[in-house]
């Protein structure tokens, strides 16, 4: 390979790399820089690690982290629920294509639209509680969005319902690409439905499940803003019961004019997400290798 052809590929991608560096790299550098400054307006004096110190000593920040971690409990539910529905659809029940569309619908709809409807449904005197009272289940008619003890679980329900739609489609797509002859062989060997699922389907789903779990964890750590914003009255309420790290950053930046603090928390969230992206890439690499094999 001569000198020109060795550099040619790099030259071709150079404009795109430059663009990406400008769009993503520059803001990232500025966020790191801001996290060490007391920013007022668009700049401010250097204060070292003070922003990190203030944030890490604030109970509200840790409460936000705790809420994000609690929301992670949704991930196993999402995986199990998505798998269950995907397996049922894989059995090609009558009308399964229609069910598939209906189940995927929540994922297409914008979160604010879903959240507004959910909010109406789950008001203390809303339709859900009215029905519960009507059928004599008064003890279940909770203040779903108005109680500090319940609101985060309501958010979690909404997350499970919507985010599972992606899992269902991913899992179903994988199942539909499985080798039918293996299933047929298992059936001929006398394996029942559960044995076929456990011993034939699930082992082949490992990689896509890993992928879904990692993306779900990243979603819950850094992309649940819209859910809590809509359900928590835009404030992470009632009280601070649905405050999460993203909303904390938003409040610091927009509502309390503390870009330095917002940057410090963003840097920490970025680093945590980065740690999670490593297994995500590993899972994708394994998937590619398996497909190639």
């Amino acid at each position: 390979m001569n000198q020109t052809s060795r550099f040619a590929p790099y030259l071709y991608v150079a404009p795109l790399v430059a663009l990406l560096l400008f769009v993503f790299g520059y803001p990232l550098i500025r966020i790191f820089e801001f996290s060490f400054k007391m920013v007022r307006g668009i700049d401010g004096p250097w204060i070292g690690l003070r922003n990190y110190e203030l944030v890490l000593n604030q109970p509200l920040f840790w409460e936000s982290v705790q809420h994000n971690l609690l929301l992670l409990l949704a991930v196993p539910f999402m995986v199990v629920w998505s798998l269950l529905i995907a397996v049922v659809l894989y059995e090609r029940l009558k009308g399964w294509k229609l069910y598939r569309v209906v189940l995927f619908l929540p994922y297409i709809l914008a979160i604010p639209i879903i959240a507004v409807i959910m909010k109406k449904l789950f008001q203390f005197n809303g339709p859900v509680n009215e029905v519960l009272r009507w059928i004599g289940l008064d003890f279940l008619a909770l203040d779903w969005i108005g109680s500090s003890d319940v609101a985060l679980w309501t958010v979690m329900m909404l997350i499970i319902w919507r985010e599972s739609a992606l899992g269902i489609i991913l899992f179903l797509a994988r199942m539909l690409s499985l080798d039918e002859s293996l299933m047929e062989a298992a059936r001929l060997e006398g394996a029942n439905w559960w044995q076929r699922v456990w011993h034939v389907i699930l082992p082949q789903m490992k990689v896509v499940m890993e992928f879904y779990i990692v993306t779900s964890i990243i979603t819950i750590l850094s992309a649940v803003f819209a859910y809590v914003y809509m359900i928590g009255g835009g404030r992470g309420g009632p009280g601070t019961s649905t405050m999460v790290v993203e909303l904390y950053i938003f409040n610091a930046l927009i509502r309390t004019s503390l870009p330095g603090i917002a940057s410090a928390v963003s840097v920490m969230l970025f680093l945590v997400s980065l740690l999670l992206i490593v297994p995500l890439f590993a899972a994708r690499r394994r998937a590619n290798e398996e497909e190639t094999a």
Partner: peptide, 22 residues
């Protein structure tokens, strides 16, 4: 009220008192 107090005390306290949490 400073913005930080507004977000972290003014609004949450009233909500929590009204629901009987504090």
């Amino acid at each position: 009220v400073p913005g930080q107090f507004y977000e972290q005390a003014l609004l949450p306290t009233a909500q929590q008192v009204v629901e009987g949490k504090i």
